[in-house]
Amino acid sequence: LGHTRVAAIGAQRGAASATAQQRVRGYQEALYRAGVPYDPALTCEVSAYRLADGVRAMRSLLDLPEPPEAVFCFNDLLAAGAVRAAADRGLGVPRDVAIAGFDDVELSQFSVPSLTTVAPDKAELARLAVTALLRRIAEDNAEEPPAVLYAGHRLVVRESSGAATS
């Protein structure tokens, strides 16, 4: 939508942060493809993917001398928290800041504004997980490092991004 200051909420460190690291890479790649420079100050770390963490991270972004025009949150709870923080500051979503999440949980459809989100193919995720588990059991190879599996996804455009059509 032409935004040039796009933030991300959800970065994490540590061994359990593989999903967060993939989403950071995806965020950086999307910026690159859009010709928007990556600004590390616009990537917010969180301790967990909860509403309160989204509120805290969004507040820190809004306190920047030049706040973001759009925010990509690594799950929909973080995005709902970000929407709340924007509203607490008197900002309209998407009028003043566009917000998108990830996961397409039920809350996304019914929040106000409804959340634009990335919907993973949950059936494919389940199939991949069960297939990998059965293979691991059949091969009795518990020492093998975990595999990285990728499932499809789709963008569900709703009100919070400002791109929803009436």
Rank of each mutant, 00 (worst) to 15 (best):
Y150T: 15
L51W: 06
A57P: 13
V112K: 07
D88I: 09
G162K: 11
A151N: 12
G10F: 03
A70D: 05
F102P: 02
P37V: 14
I99E: 01
T165M: 10
D76V: 01
V118C: 03
R89C: 07
C73I: 04
L1E: 13
F102Y: 15
A123S: 10
E66H: 08
L61H: 02
A86M: 07
V156F: 01
A52L: 13
T19R: 05
F110R: 13
L149T: 04
G101I: 09
P40A: 12
R56Q: 12
D121T: 10
A82Q: 00
A41P: 03
S161M: 10
V24Q: 13
P120S: 03
L149A: 01
H153N: 09
R13E: 14
R95T: 14
E143G: 11
E29C: 07
A86L: 06
R23I: 13
V112Q: 12
R13M: 09
D76M: 00
S60R: 15
C44F: 09
S114V: 02
I9V: 15
A48W: 14
T117Y: 01
P67R: 02
G81M: 05
A34H: 10
A86P: 00
V55P: 06
L61S: 01
G152N: 11
V118E: 01
A57F: 07
F72H: 08
Q22L: 13
S161V: 13
E69Y: 06
L51D: 00
V6Y: 04
L78P: 00
A87I: 12
T131G: 06
V6N: 02
V24F: 01
R158P: 09
S108C: 03
G81T: 06
Q21L: 07
D121G: 05
F110D: 01
T131K: 13
A87R: 15
A100E: 02
S108Q: 03
R95Y: 05
A8W: 05
Q21E: 14
Q22S: 11
D76K: 02
L1N: 11
P94C: 04
L77G: 00
G92Y: 01
Y32H: 14
R89W: 09
E139C: 08
A52W: 05
S108G: 14
Y32N: 11
S161F: 09
P65V: 14
A164C: 04
I137S: 04
G92N: 03
G26R: 03
Q21F: 05
S160H: 05
A163G: 08
E66L: 11
D63T: 13
A34E: 09
A123Q: 09
H3E: 08
K122T: 11
L155T: 08
L134V: 15
Q109N: 04
A11S: 13
L115Q: 10
Y38S: 09
P67W: 06
A142T: 15
L77E: 07
D121L: 09
L64W: 02
L91M: 11
T131P: 00
L61N: 00
P65E: 15
T4Q: 14
A82S: 02
L133S: 01
P37K: 10
V156T: 09
F74S: 02
I99P: 03
T165L: 11
